[in-house]
Design a binder for these strands. Structure first.
Lengths: 185, 185, 185, 185
DNA sequence: AATGAATGAGGCTTCATTCAT
DNA sequence: TATGAATGAAGCCTCATTCAT
């Protein structure tokens, strides 16, 4: 039941937003009552936190696996971009909620999630830094700003990319890797 | 007074979010009463719409001016990126609200704003397309996806870029133009 | 202007009800502003009172004229019924407002209007009483209750009678006089 | 609790009118909170609808029972008048609300109630029609208009008749039946 | 493990009214 | 004679949450 509540909530939060989705909406969609909700979750925020952690922990895990591979930084970067993009197809709604609704976490929870987000970013930054040192990437780049740019490109996909549309996630990841690596000139 | 309400609302919406900012919050911050608010705005949504239109119309205007210049597409693109980034410093809060709170517009209003957003994107797409045709940019690029990428890079800045931080908006715009044009390899 | 406000208000009150019609509705329908309204009327209730008095005073006047005629009580009754019914065609909206919205008068005003209403009823009662005494009507009738019945028949017309429908006000008055006088057996 | 809310609301609506009675008034009178009200009724209008349906459905039921009896139309008419009048004593407030506050129903609900009201009227009309055909009543009568008259007489009672006053409901019903059947001449 | 009744705070909005100009 | 800005009280409704069962 707990899993069902979480899953349905993700869908509703993605569709209507966190604030606009009431506990009533959630339990009605599942055919249970409010009491049930509060049996499994102590508050609406805690549910949101659950969703956030589920998402970011999984992402960090998979990032780490890439990081540990014995491959070039260039290849790592490519796989990381693919990781972010192809995730949309698999955990799309989860991601949208993740990128949109962090504001609704209380101070403490927000702090925790923010930390993990930044860890992800720092990891990405490190790949770029390493790539520069090892001359895989150009000299003179600002690794932190490049990292932000990559995250921007990838995360923005959540706003428009439709996996069942005219282009696959894999192809999109390729295009983006190419863009980041080679530019458009 | 109308302008004051709008301006203060933008700040509050940016800080706490649209749903989390009550009319009460707004009028209290201004030392007036709720009646005053409704004298100037027929609803909370209408105020949001006002903010959105103010932002996107201004953006479209300035985009058009760039588009009409007698300069290369490469230069146009550079200026457009600068337009988006440097705007943060000037109309930062407005932009954040714009990128975050569209969901709270009703169907009709959302439709109108979406139209203008897409017009901006299409204009950007055209620059890329023209640049490809005129051999300023590489062949084989997907102009629409590249456009999304550029918007992602720029818009994501709203989430982290702090104009009073360690880097200026101009410098950031330069870095991003360089990245888009040349890649990191 | 005062007359225009009153007239338009009657129409709006009839259509939507007193409580449901705002001062805003009234002045908007006239293309003026709220200030104008309060220049002519000290309150919404006072406007309602104006309407009530205009209606009931006129009705009482015309009733009196009938009462003073040198005709049989039977004929007086017939003319009174006609007076009530045919009024719908002429002052329809006014009448509907009169019969519906008295509750919105304050204590003092309600008292005054109630007095005039009762005067009308008492006058009607007197005709019946006189008619009984003079053997134009049956013995043993309760004049007060008969008066209520006649008012019921006539006033209820305001709820359904459409002067531009299939039957004229004159014809309806005839039918009702016949019914009251002769019954249906 | 739901029944209690409904019952108390009827009393308050009768006394002060629907628009003039706030949800606050209702729950305060019962010593509960607004939340409780909305737990049982989805809106103020829905409560009103509940009241309307409770009244008209009951009335239609009892009308039907009379209609099916093996008695003369004259007797049916008499019993129907008695039904309407004596109802005041029993469900007085309910009736007053019914006859006064239909305007506050939304389009859809009003339509439904209007249909039932008209069914009641049509049934009454049929009795008169049948009575004419079977020569119990005079020829040449307009059954629909007579029906309106009867409803007017009866319904108007709600405005003045006080069951605990100088005359009983049974006696009033007798007087009205006599008036309708025999007239006053 | 789940229900259903109840709460109370707060949200958006409407509105009659006032008043300086 | 009329305007327009501002008020403040009140209205309907939503919602996260609690708790006895």
């Amino acid at each position: 039941m707990k899993a069902e509540i979480k899953q349905k909530s993700i869908l509703l939060f993605e569709e209507k937003g966190f604030s606009e989705t009431s506990i009533q909406d959630i339990v009605e969609a599942l055919g249970v009552t409010k009491g049930t909700f509060y049996y499994y979750f102590s508050s609406k925020e805690q549910l949101l936190m659950d969703i956030h952690l589920g998402y970011i922990d999984d992402l960090l895990n998979r990032q780490e696996k890439i990081q540990q591979k014995q491959i070039s930084n260039r290849e790592k970067l490519t796989q990381l971009i693919a990781l972010l993009i192809t995730d949309i197809a698999k955990h799309g709604p989860s991601g949208k909620v993740f990128f949109r609704e962090m504001r609704h976490l209380g101070e403490e929870n927000a702090f925790q999630v923010k930390g993990k987000r930044e860890k992800f970013r720092k990891n990405l930054e490190k790949i770029i830094m390493d790539g520069i040192v090892q001359k895989e990437f150009r000299q003179g780049l600002d690794p932190d700003i490049i990292a932000f740019a990559i995250l921007g490109v990838a995360n923005w996909s959540y706003q428009w990319f439709n996996p069942s549309g005219g282009i696959t996630a894999d192809r999109l990841a390729d295009i983006y890797s190419d863009l980041i690596l080679n530019g458009i000139v």
